[in-house]
Amino acid sequence: MIEYKNAWFSVIRNGKYYFIDEPKSSDSSAILLRWKNKIVLVEQYRPAIRKLSIEIPRGYAEPGESSIDCAIREVNEETGFSITKNMLTTLGYLNPNSAILTSRVTIHYGHIDDSQNQKPVSTEINRCIFATYNEFCSMVLSGTITDGFTISAFALAMLKTDMEKTMSQL
């Protein structure tokens, strides 16, 4: 039974259990990017946690938009970088909170051409942060980065690529 519904999600009651259905999440994307051997992060205010969050670019797909197209658009909107399909590799999928969310998000990994310059970012993002491998790890271990999409994408990249070796050359 639907208890509440808006443009982004519905709260569903199934007996004594409640969960959130996010139908727009099926083609959403979270994108771990490298540029000039640094990890591209964005800082933005997240009302749910009432503070700034440092995380990778991500977002919901527009109607009819594929996960890859969503990734390309979100990267451009949030960082100012232009990427293409051939610059992205799908690493896997993430169910951010399988206890209460129906969400399934595609995790992509990409490398931005070192010669590309960053353009101004959108108003939804405070700033871009470019972290070396060691800086990123320190930010996670210190609790500066707590975003589950970001940490999960990094873990997938570590398991599926030779990212540590590549990033350690800095």
Results as ranks from 00 to 15, higher is better:
residue 163 M to E: 10
residue 57 P to C: 10
residue 44 Q to T: 10
residue 159 L to E: 15
residue 33 L to I: 11
residue 136 F to N: 03
residue 167 M to S: 08
residue 141 L to D: 15
residue 106 T to H: 02
residue 50 R to M: 15
residue 20 I to A: 06
residue 88 L to P: 03
residue 100 I to S: 04
residue 123 T to P: 01
residue 19 F to M: 02
residue 146 T to K: 08
residue 15 G to P: 07
residue 12 I to C: 01
residue 167 M to C: 10
residue 59 G to E: 05
residue 122 S to K: 05
residue 61 A to M: 12
residue 138 S to I: 01
residue 102 T to N: 04
residue 99 A to Q: 06
residue 50 R to T: 13
residue 58 R to E: 11
residue 64 G to L: 10
residue 168 S to N: 03
residue 27 D to S: 14
residue 29 S to M: 10
residue 155 A to I: 08
residue 17 Y to F: 08
residue 32 L to I: 14
residue 156 L to T: 04
residue 146 T to C: 02
residue 135 E to W: 12
residue 126 N to V: 12
residue 169 Q to G: 04
residue 34 R to V: 13
residue 71 A to I: 13
residue 138 S to T: 06
residue 10 S to Q: 14
residue 163 M to W: 11
residue 90 T to K: 15
residue 18 Y to Q: 11
residue 103 S to M: 04
residue 89 T to L: 07
residue 21 D to H: 06
residue 12 I to Q: 03
residue 108 H to N: 00
residue 144 T to P: 05
residue 120 P to V: 02
residue 146 T to Q: 08
residue 11 V to L: 08
residue 145 I to H: 06
residue 30 A to G: 15
residue 73 R to W: 09
residue 13 R to V: 06
residue 49 I to R: 14
residue 74 E to F: 07
residue 166 T to F: 08
residue 42 V to A: 06
residue 38 K to F: 04
residue 134 N to F: 10
residue 9 F to S: 12
residue 150 T to A: 01
residue 117 N to G: 09
residue 3 E to N: 11
residue 152 S to F: 13
residue 94 L to R: 05
residue 64 G to T: 11
residue 160 K to C: 09
residue 62 E to Y: 14
residue 10 S to K: 11
residue 148 G to A: 07
residue 128 C to F: 00
residue 92 G to E: 02
residue 125 I to R: 00
residue 144 T to F: 07
residue 89 T to V: 06
residue 35 W to V: 11
residue 58 R to W: 04
residue 136 F to K: 02
residue 48 A to N: 15
residue 6 N to H: 05
residue 2 I to M: 13
residue 162 D to W: 07
residue 53 S to K: 15
residue 8 W to R: 10
residue 41 L to I: 08
residue 89 T to H: 03
residue 41 L to C: 15
residue 29 S to D: 07
residue 112 I to H: 01
residue 60 Y to W: 10
residue 40 V to S: 05
residue 101 L to I: 04
residue 133 Y to T: 03
residue 102 T to Y: 07
residue 70 C to P: 08
residue 57 P to N: 15
residue 9 F to W: 00
residue 139 M to N: 12
